[in-house]
């Protein structure tokens, strides 16, 4: 990946991510009236094997949403089980959460974070990408062959909700052809 991305391109991608995540964090912060801390976006290339290895934690929930358009890929939201109740309360859910209301909460959070994040990303690049509805994702049931991409660009950022233990990670995975589209568009922003 270091050879695929120049320093300038990496900078540009990180900044695009920063801006998109800033919008996502703002959407969530206003909804729950709490401050959100964002990590510096991490950009890397992974194989499906490595990617699946990222998805084996028992302390988190996963959701996935695919997107189609000028760029194609998937957004995976990784939401900590820890602190989920606190967020549920802030979002006016009744405790204890049932399986149904938990799923609803996770999908709602995924939609806010991934939706705002992908929208911001596509908008800045003037690329169209349509996000599907999120689904709860059970990585354990997934096999490597089910992944259509060979090696891909992964952009991840971490959201932490201040004064609670909740944190979440949004991972955008792009298909290989989309990486080329992305880099070509980035070039225009760098001129």
């Amino acid at each position: 990946m270091n050879t695929l991305l120049s320093e300038e391109q990496r900078d540009a991608l990180q900044e695009l991510m920063n801006i998109s995540m800033g919008q996502a964090a703002n959407a969530l912060a206003r909804l729950i009236s709490a401050k959100i801390t964002l990590s510096i976006p991490k950009i890397s290339a992974v194989t499906p094997h490595k990617f699946l290895a990222m998805l084996t934690k028992r302390t988190v929930w996963y959701t996935r949403q695919s997107f189609l358009g000028a760029i194609k890929g998937e957004v995976v939201a990784i939401l900590s089980k820890d602190g989920c109740d606190a967020i549920a309360l802030l979002m006016d859910y009744d405790l204890p959460l049932t399986q149904d209301t938990l799923n609803e909460l996770l999908l709602e959070l995924a939609n806010i974070l991934a939706g705002a994040c992908l929208a911001g990303f596509a908008e800045q690049l003037s690329l169209k990408a349509k996000l599907s509805m999120p689904t709860i994702f059970m990585p354990a049931a997934l096999r490597v062959e089910q992944y259509r991409w060979a090696s891909t660009l992964i952009m991840e950022v971490e959201f932490k909700v201040e004064a609670s233990h909740f944190d979440s990670k949004i991972v955008i995975c792009l298909e290989e052809a989309s990486v080329q589209t992305l880099l070509a568009t980035l070039q225009q922003l760098l001129e």
Binding site: E15, N18, I19, M21, G22, Q23, A25, N26, A29, R30, K35, I36, L38
Partner: peptide, 8 residues
């Protein structure tokens, strides 16, 4: 000019 646009 900021990417962090939270009220705080």
């Amino acid at each position: 000019i900021s990417a962090d646009i939270q009220p705080e």
